[in-house]
Computed example of a mutant assay.
Amino acid sequence: MEAAERSIVDGHPYHPCCRSRPGFTVADQLAFAPEHGADVALELLALPARRALAVGAWPASLRDDRGGTLLPVHPWQAREVLPGLGFTPTGRTLSAAPLMSVRTLAPLDGGPHLKTSLSLRMTSAVRDISGGSVRNAPAISALLEHVVAPLDGSLRITRNLAAAAALVDGEPCADLAAIVRESPAAGLRPGERVVPLAALAAHPLKTEDPAAWLGVFARLTWPPLLTLWDGGVALEAHGQNLLLVLDLGDRPVRLVYRDLNDVRVSPERLARRARLGGPTPNAPVTGHVISDDPVVLRRKLLGSLVGSAFGGLVSGFGGGDRQVEDRLWRVIAAEARRAAAELLHDPADRRALLEEPLPVKALTLMRLDGRPAGDEWTEVPNPLA
């Protein structure tokens, strides 16, 4: 799986500065960026109980002899941020392979993945981890596990197992925090492999009939993601967060979704779904993930799934041939119409999916407008229309 993550040398399809990481020197790029293949030595910062906020089942392997929290810190963060916060590195490290997001890493000795704070602006946001995200990590994980349970195993959520942050002046520090997350490879059966969709877009599978393969993938993908959207959970299902389990013949088997911090949850829709017999939410989720605004939910799912995940696969299989790409989009659109007719209760959602312009993040504007990091949106023609 790590090899697939490192095979991606292009970045976001809507961002011409996709590999721009302000704050990294050339040496930092070579040392820390996944596409250059180097492993990373995470600093393990020892935090006594009075200086740590920890939630969930913090791993025993990340505790010191006195039971204190060992917080994984990215080496760039340890070099640039630790000195200004009054913390002293211990010299104890953990070797890990950087994944697509740069700041999430897979320990070389196996086990859960580690999402670390990295106070750089990459794509659209500064990649720290707020105190709210630390406190919310187990709750959002439990909620998503609950709502995907009725989906018959077509979609698995990589659970947030624990989260922690250093306390600075009594408050969790967004620059020194980490989330321990289940690996997407957990639960694989013999002969199966899991790859991010971005890797499949960059290195298309060798198949005699891309349209048939995409049809199978679309039939696997639309029902669970539209069911969740209709019921109150919009996933940010772009090519980095959405992964695909393949069998020995490279046929799609099931989906895996990772990185729960940027989903959007609608309490209003969850309550409606519960009244109709769906799963009743049982986890107290708070913070920026909460929104009942239908526009916010549509942007979150459609901009990522259609614009990035499906768009990347069509581009990869099509190879620049517009006639081939049009044929592939027709296959995807047919499956979308079929699933939407059955699963989407709100006619406005069906129109947003199948008729209206596609919302996508205006990433170049977000980088150049000089405003604080945050989402700006634009619209492009909808390939499903």
Rank of each mutant, 00 (worst) to 15 (best):
residue 1 M to L: 14
residue 1 M to A: 15
residue 3 A to N: 10
residue 6 R to M: 08
residue 10 D to S: 14
residue 11 G to P: 07
residue 12 H to T: 11
residue 13 P to S: 07
residue 14 Y to Q: 08
residue 16 P to M: 12
residue 20 S to V: 10
residue 23 G to E: 03
residue 26 V to Y: 03
residue 30 L to D: 13
residue 33 A to T: 11
residue 33 A to E: 15
residue 35 E to I: 11
residue 37 G to Y: 01
residue 38 A to N: 05
residue 40 V to K: 02
residue 40 V to L: 04
residue 40 V to Y: 04
residue 47 L to I: 12
residue 49 A to M: 09
residue 50 R to G: 09
residue 51 R to Y: 07
residue 51 R to N: 07
residue 52 A to T: 06
residue 53 L to P: 04
residue 56 G to V: 10
residue 70 L to H: 01
residue 71 L to K: 01
residue 74 H to K: 08
residue 78 A to I: 04
residue 79 R to H: 07
residue 84 G to V: 09
residue 89 P to I: 06
residue 95 S to E: 13
residue 96 A to L: 06
residue 97 A to P: 03
residue 97 A to F: 04
residue 98 P to C: 11
residue 100 M to Y: 09
residue 110 G to C: 06
residue 112 P to R: 03
residue 114 L to K: 06
residue 114 L to D: 06
residue 115 K to D: 02
residue 116 T to E: 02
residue 118 L to Q: 06
residue 120 L to A: 08
residue 122 M to T: 10
residue 123 T to N: 13
residue 124 S to F: 12
residue 124 S to I: 05
residue 126 V to F: 10
residue 126 V to A: 09
residue 130 S to Y: 04
residue 132 G to I: 11
residue 132 G to D: 13
residue 133 S to M: 13
residue 136 N to M: 04
residue 138 P to T: 12
residue 140 I to D: 04
residue 142 A to Y: 02
residue 143 L to H: 00
residue 148 V to A: 01
residue 148 V to I: 10
residue 149 A to C: 05
residue 157 I to G: 00
residue 163 A to Y: 11
residue 166 A to P: 12
residue 168 V to S: 14
residue 173 C to T: 12
residue 174 A to H: 02
residue 176 L to P: 03
residue 177 A to C: 02
residue 180 V to I: 15
residue 182 E to W: 12
residue 188 L to I: 14
residue 191 G to C: 06
residue 195 V to H: 00
residue 197 L to K: 02
residue 198 A to Y: 12
residue 199 A to K: 00
residue 201 A to F: 03
residue 202 A to L: 07
residue 206 K to N: 08
residue 206 K to M: 10
residue 221 T to M: 02
residue 222 W to M: 03
residue 223 P to R: 01
residue 224 P to L: 09
residue 231 G to S: 11
residue 233 V to G: 02
residue 233 V to K: 00
residue 239 G to R: 01
residue 247 D to M: 04
residue 250 D to I: 10
residue 252 P to K: 00
residue 254 R to A: 03
residue 262 D to P: 08
residue 263 V to H: 00
residue 263 V to W: 00
residue 266 S to M: 11
residue 267 P to G: 11
residue 270 L to N: 02
residue 276 L to M: 09
residue 280 T to K: 07
residue 280 T to H: 13
residue 283 A to R: 04
residue 289 V to L: 11
residue 289 V to P: 07
residue 294 P to W: 04
residue 296 V to H: 04
residue 310 F to D: 00
residue 311 G to F: 05
residue 312 G to A: 14
residue 313 L to D: 05
residue 319 G to F: 06
residue 325 E to S: 11
residue 337 R to H: 09
residue 338 R to D: 15
residue 343 L to I: 13
residue 345 H to S: 15
residue 346 D to F: 11
residue 350 R to L: 14
residue 352 A to G: 01
residue 354 L to Q: 01
residue 354 L to I: 08
residue 361 K to T: 09
residue 362 A to W: 02
residue 365 L to A: 15
residue 366 M to Y: 04
residue 366 M to Q: 11
residue 366 M to G: 10
residue 371 R to M: 12
residue 373 A to G: 01
residue 373 A to H: 01
residue 375 D to A: 06
residue 378 T to R: 07
residue 379 E to T: 08
residue 382 N to L: 09
